[in-house]
Structure formats: structure tokens, C-alpha cells
Design a binder for these strands. Structure first.
Length: 480
RNA sequence: CGGGGUGUAGCGCAGUUUGGUAGCGCAUCUGGUUUGGGACCAGAGGGCCGCGGGUUCAAAUCCUGCCACCCCGACCA
């Protein structure tokens, strides 16, 4: 290994050597996050936050285009409200943070910091809703929630995380179900069109579903190391909460009834997914549509006359809708900058130097394949726009290929155990649908049933895990 | 909460065995030369050696108590 090659390798532990360490190296060295004084809580730095903002921008538009409105509910929830839905409190109680004092006074009733907002939102919906004419309620909020996790990892599992949570009410079950699936569909499109991450969608088992849900739907992505990541969930909550919170309305038939209820959310965990699906040993590889910097322009020998002027001229030519930055910091060599922005995952690098200006061209290199070539200055905007799309498509295809190569059918439990050991990924199999069998899978392999996919395949009529009669085809994987 | 590990400059580490002026690399700052894959020279700043107690003429180093963080398990968007 040459000295030059060694230098970036030393910065980031190769993922084949130690995947968790690779992940930690990448997120800290690329300035996405920093650890805070409070364990499990992290600071999202400007470069990381800009990714989140781009995700927000895209999704917020999708939500509004489908009729949702944003609002904001309080951070603190009285204990009595949290307790109203029995399954819900049982699921969340172990991980809520409590506020017990206001100033020096002990509170009469302690307040929990929201781990999710169904309860406080339902308490308000109960106050508001009177008639079927007001339905549906289609609300969303962008906020943070706190869950006191025992072990945390930046983006993937932190004690506080940023997310959006949609909470809707509907007149009928069918409408609620339609909403639940519509939002999961938007999540899937966001994953594929914005983040270039292929996902499997389906329904969660009862064991894995949201505490208090009638049914939970999920999208699951496969990371580079073969572990799955639950990337977003959409819940049909039926009337569980609306009955517990006594949300009622006067229906078309003149009778008082409970509405049907959904909730759905995605979080900053998505950023962890982006890193682990696309990243390589040089660092981040960011999907073009959400990269904070889409094009980094590096002037070469910038002290020479005309170089910087040309760079700024080209930036203008590229237009306001492409996120372009020029690094004209004179303290770093071009080589240093090349490595820096590769590490940061910037999709396109453009070099402009005296030789290029002479030939009326620039050097352009793409992060996903690391290919570098000369292109004419004329038509640069069109070249860049189509290259950004190209990179997106290539990244999505590459991720899909990786997922497919790591998705396999199993013949029986022994075969499954062996495959989980040797080559983690999505195992496809038939499942009997019982809790005992599901618990046993986890006990034996630490893998879990990720979902019962919408696209069911017929892989036989016996459960691959216990031999009983099969009910569902499932994806099983070790998960983050 | 169990098992293992680590705490020395912003980061990465040496020094601890055998007590004796707190060091190295990177980063940072100043000046200059450089600039097509992590540039070079000269100079500078930066420390409660995790915290408390003890032993000693003398503690980063020995004894002791505590704390924090990391990794592996159990719990989880």
C-alpha cells in the first residue's frame, strides 16, 4: 500500500474489519454529529442537520399534497393520560423520562416527556371532535421525542430523536386503513426517490407491532453488513385509543360513535440508514437529492489569474437550484480537499484549473463510482443535472442489488440458523403465526421477524421454523 | 442490569512494571514558500495526568474508594 493510499484508510476503519467502528468513524469524521454531555443524547451538527432538513422538505411537501396540516402539541404529558390505553403504557413505561418538579415545587402529578404523542393528541381530539362533518382530521407534527434507551448509537438509537408523527382520525375503518397504507406508500417512495434506499414493506407481527396498535406496517431496509433497519412505520390504531380517550362524534346515522385512528412516523434514524446503505471505506456517499452540497467546486492553483473568477462564473452558470459550493480556502491543498469532500459524500466534484480554462473544460468526478473525466464548460448545467440523476439511479440499483444478493429462501430451521451465522441478510420463509415460534427464532438466533411482506410468496405449507402449518410468508433478519 | 476494556493537550497515543522537571504525532495559531490526489520551512500556544482519600522528602506512576465512557449480551423508532 502506498503512502498516499494509506492516509485515508487510517482515518476510517474499513467496514470489513469492524463495521460498528466504521460507522462511528464516518459520522464523527464527517462532522454529522457530536456526543453531548448527556449520555445517549447527541448534537446534530450543521452538515448532519442539513440532511435532515432536506428529508423534511421533501416529506413535508408530500404530506401537504395529501391534505395533511402541521401543528404542535406539548412536550409534557400527564401520567394519567399516558395510562389511559393499557397496551400503550405497558409498552412505553419502561423508557419514559419523568418531570417531577417545577422549580422547587414537587408536582402533584408527574409529567412524562413524550415518547410519542398519541395520548396527548387524543386527549385534545376528544375535546374538539363533534361531528362526522369535521372528519377526517389529518394532522402531523415535526418534533423530538425522548425514550430512555439502555444502549444508544448516533442516529440509529438515541435517547432523544427528531421525527415527524402524523395522527389522523377517520369516520370508517376502511378510510383509516387506506390512510395507513397511503402514508407507508409515501415513506417507501421517499426512501427510494429521495434516499435511494430500496425497502421491503409489509405488516408487523403482533409481537413487533406498536404498543396499542390494531396493525403496524413497516418499511425495512437492508444495511451493508446484512442487518435490517426499520426505517418507518405506519399504524392503524383502530378504535383502541379513540375508545380509551372517549373521542366521539355524531355520525350520519344520528348515532354517537368512535372514529378510527392512525399514526405514522419516520425519524432521524433514516440518516443512519443512508450512511449504512450507501457508505464505503472512504466515508459517506450521499444520495444527490438530499446531499447538502451536491457539487463541490475546487479551484486548482487559485492564486493564478482568472481561476477563481472562472469558478464563480461556473457556479452562476449552474444555477440556484443546484446546491454548489466553491472551496477556495487557500490553506489546504487540492488533494486534501478531494479526500475531504469524498469523505463527506458530496456526489459531484468539479475541478477548475489553468489547464482546464485553456481547454474550455472542467474535470468532473462522481462520488458513487469515483470516475473522473473532462467535460466541456459549455452545457455544464445540463451535464451536472443529468449526472445527479444518474448517480441517484446507480445508487438505488446498487443498493437493490446488494439487498437481493443478501435475500435468500431457507429450507428449515437448521438451514436458517446456519445462514444467519454465515451470511446475515433477509431470510425468506413461511411462518405458522404463533408467538412461541417467533420467540424461539429470536432466542436461538437473535434475529427477528421483520415483516409479513405485502408481496407474499408461496414457499410451502409448513412453517420453516417449527414445522406446523404455515400462515404467512415472512422476512427474518437481525436488526438494528 | 451481567461480562470485558479504557481514562494523560481538541483527537490518537507513549510514559505507570522499577516513584524524581509531563512527552510524541495529528490538529490549532503566526510568517513565508506552495497548489492537478491529504504540501514544505521556521516559530508559537495549549495539561487539575477522570475525581476523592491515603503512603512518601517526592505520585501520572504505589494503595484505596468513587465516577465516566466504549465494546459484548438482555430491552428498544
Amino acid at each position: 500500500m502506498s503512502k498516499k493510499e494509506k492516509q485515508f484508510v487510517e482515518d476510517i476503519t474499513p467496514m470489513e474489519v469492524d463495521f460498528p467502528q466504521w460507522y462511528t468513524d464516518v459520522i464523527t469524521k464527517t462532522d454529522l454529529v457530536d456526543y453531548s454531555p448527556v449520555r445517549g443524547f447527541m448534537v446534530i451538527k450543521p452538515y448532519g442537520y442539513a440532511i435532515w432538513e432536506n428529508i423534511q422538505k421533501y416529506m413535508d411537501k408530500r404530506f401537504k399534497d395529501t391534505g395533511h396540516k402541521n401543528c404542535y402539541f406539548p412536550l409534557l404529558i400527564p401520567e394519567s393520560l399516558l395510562k389511559k390505553e393499557a397496551e400503550h403504557v405497558e409498552g412505553f413505561a419502561p423508557e419514559v423520562a419523568w418531570v417531577t418538579h417545577g422549580g422547587k415545587e414537587e408536582l402533584q402529578e408527574r409529567l412524562c416527556v413524550r415518547p410519542t404523542s398519541e395520548t396527548i393528541i387524543c386527549s385534545m381530539y376528544a375535546k374538539w371532535l363533534k361531528s362526522y362533518r369535521e372528519l377526517p382530521y389529518l394532522y402531523n407534527q415535526w418534533c423530538s421525542v425522548v425514550r430512555w434507551e439502555k444502549s444508544t448509537r448516533p442516529f440509529l438509537r438515541t435517547s432523544e430523536f427528531l421525527w415527524q408523527e402524523g395522527h389522523t382520525l377517520h369516520e370508517t375503518y376502511d378510510e383509516a386503513q387506506e390512510e395507513t397504507l397511503q402514508m407507508l406508500g409515501i415513506y417507501k417512495e421517499t426512501a427510494e426517490e429521495l434516499m435511494a434506499i430500496p425497502v421491503v414493506t409489509g405488516r408487523k407481527s403482533d409481537k413487533e407491532k406498536f404498543a396499542g396498535a390494531y396493525a403496524t406496517y413497516t418499511m425495512e431496509a437492508l444495511m451493508h453488513d446484512g442487518k435490517a433497519l426499520q426505517a418507518g412505520t405506519s399504524h392503524n390504531l383502530g378504535q383502541h385509543f379513540t375508545k380509551a380517550f372517549e373521542i366521539t362524534f355524531l355520525g350520519r346515522n344520528g348515532e354517537i360513535q368512535n372514529p378510527y385512528h392512525t399514526s405514522w412516523g419516520v425519524s432521524t434514524r433514516l440518516i443512519g440508514g443512508i450512511i449504512m446503505v450507501h457508505g464505503d471505506n472512504r466515508g459517506l456517499v450521499l444520495p444527490p437529492r438530499l446531499a447538502p452540497i451536491q457539487v463541490i467546486m475546487i479551484p486548482i492553483a487559485q492564486h493564478k489569474e482568472g481561476v477563481l473568477d472562472k469558478a464563480y462564473e461556473l457556479k452562476k452558470l449552474l444555477g440556484d437550484d443546484i446546491r454548489v459550493e466553491i472551496d477556495d480556502n487557500d490553506n489546504y491543498s487540492p488533494g486534501w480537499k478531494f479526500n475531504e469532500y469524498e469523505m463527506k459524500g458530496v456526489p459531484i466534484r468539479i475541478e477548475v484549473g489553468p489547464k482546464d480554462i485553456e481547454k474550455n473544460q472542467v474535470m468532473i468526478s462522481r462520488r458513487d463510482t469515483l470516475e473522473k473525466q473532462a467535460v466541456p464548460m459549455e452545457g455544464l448545467r445540463e451535464t451536472v443535472l443529468s449526472l445527479l440523476d444518474d448517480i441517484h439511479n446507480n445508487m438505488l440499483e446498487r443498493a437493490r442489488k446488494h439487498r437481493d444478493e443478501n435475500t435468500y429462501s431457507i429450507s428449515d430451521f437448521e438451514d436458517f440458523k446456519q445462514k444467519m451465522e454465515e451470511k446475515p441478510g433477509f431470510a425468506k420463509g413461511m411462518w405458522c403465526g404463533t408467538r412461541e415460534c417467533e420467540d424461539n427464532i429470536k432466542a436461538e438466533t437473535s434475529a427477528t421477524i421483520r415483516c409479513m411482506p405485502f408481496e407474499q410468496e408461496d414457499l410451502g405449507d409448513k412453517c420453516h421454523f417449527c414445522g406446523k402449518e404455515a400462515k404467512h410468508m415472512v422476512y427474518v433478519a437481525k436488526a438494528y
